[in-house]
C-alpha cells in the first residue's frame, strides 16, 4: 500500500461522504445523476464478489463493505426517500446508461485475465467504472446552476482517479515492473473523461465564479 493509493481511497471515501451529507442534510439530490449512482452500485457489486472468498486484508473488507453499502444507500435515498426523490433532476438525467452496460459486458467476455465468473465480472466492473461518470457529466452540462457540493463531489471523484494513476506509476517503477493492462487502461480512460470538467472547475474556482460547463 503506497501513499498515492491510500490517499486515493480516502479521497474516494470523502467524496461519497460529501454526497451523502448533501443528500441527508439538504434532503436534496438536485444535480446528481441517479444513473451514475446506479452504475456505481453495479461496479461495486460485480467487483467485490470475492469479498468473502479472497482474503486480502481487513482494510479491503471494510472499504469494500463501505463502498457497497454507501452506494446502495445513495440510490435508495434518490429512488425511495419521500422528500429526496422529489428533488431528483429526472428530466435532465436522461443518459441511456443501459447502453453502457452491454458493451462493457461484451468487452469483458473478450478481454479478461481468466474466463471465470469472478475475472470476467471484475473486468466488466473496471470497464463500467471507466464510463460510469458520463451520465453525471452530461447532467452537469444540462444543469443551469451547479451547486457547490455537486461540483466538489465530481471534482473529488476525479482527484481519486488521478491519485490511482499516480499509484500505478509508483507501483510500475517500484513494485511490479510490468503493466496491468485491464485496470490501468480502463483507469486512464476514466481519468481522461474528467479532463474538461477539471478545466472548468479550476477556472471557476480561480475566477471565484459559479461552475458552468458548456452545453
Amino acid at each position: 500500500m503506497n501513499l498515492f493509493r491510500l490517499l486515493g481511497d480516502m479521497t474516494h471515501l470523502l467524496c461519497i461522504v460529501v454526497l451523502l451529507l448533501k443528500i441527508r442534510t439538504r434532503k436534496s439530490c438536485a444535480g446528481i445523476s441517479l444513473k451514475t449512482q446506479e452504475l456505481y452500485v453495479i461496479v461495486f457489486l460485480t467487483r467485490y464478489l470475492d469479498l468473502f472468498t479472497m482474503y486480502n486484508s481487513l482494510y479491503q473488507i471494510v472499504m469494500k463493505l463501505v463502498f457497497v453499502g454507501t452506494s446502495i444507500g445513495i440510490v435508495w435515498y434518490m429512488r425511495y426517500h419521500k422528500v429526496v426523490k422529489q428533488t431528483y433532476s429526472k428530466n435532465e438525467d436522461t443518459f441511456r446508461h443501459y447502453f453502457l452496460i452491454l458493451p462493457c459486458f461484451v468487452l469483458a467476455l473478450f478481454v479478461h485475465l481468466d474466463f471465470t465468473v469472478v475475472e470476467v465480472l471484475w473486468s466488466f466492473s473496471l470497464y463500467l467504472e471507466a464510463v460510469a461518470i458520463l451520465p453525471q457529466l452530461v447532467l452537469l452540462q444540462r444543469s443551469r446552476n451547479i451547486d457547490t457540493l455537486t461540483g466538489d463531489y465530481v471534482f473529488l471523484l476525479g482527484v481519486y482517479r488521478v491519485l490511482y494513476l499516480l499509484n500505478w506509476v509508483y507501483r510500475f517503477f517500484m513494485e511490479i515492473h510490468q503493466i496491468r493492462w485491464i485496470p490501468w487502461v480502463s483507469g486512464f480512460i476514466q481519468t481522461a473523461l474528467y479532463a474538461d470538467f477539471f478545466y472548468y472547475y479550476i477556472k471557476s474556482w480561480k475566477n471565484r465564479e459559479k461552475l458552468k460547463l458548456p452545453a
Binding site: 479491503q60 485475465l113 471484475w122 511490479i176 496491468r180
Partner: peptide
C-alpha cells in the same frame, strides 16, 4: 503470480 494479485486494489 502477480496477475492473480491484480485484485489487490479496490
Amino acid at each position: 503470480d502477480p496477475e492473480s494479485k491484480a485484485h489487490d486494489e479496490l
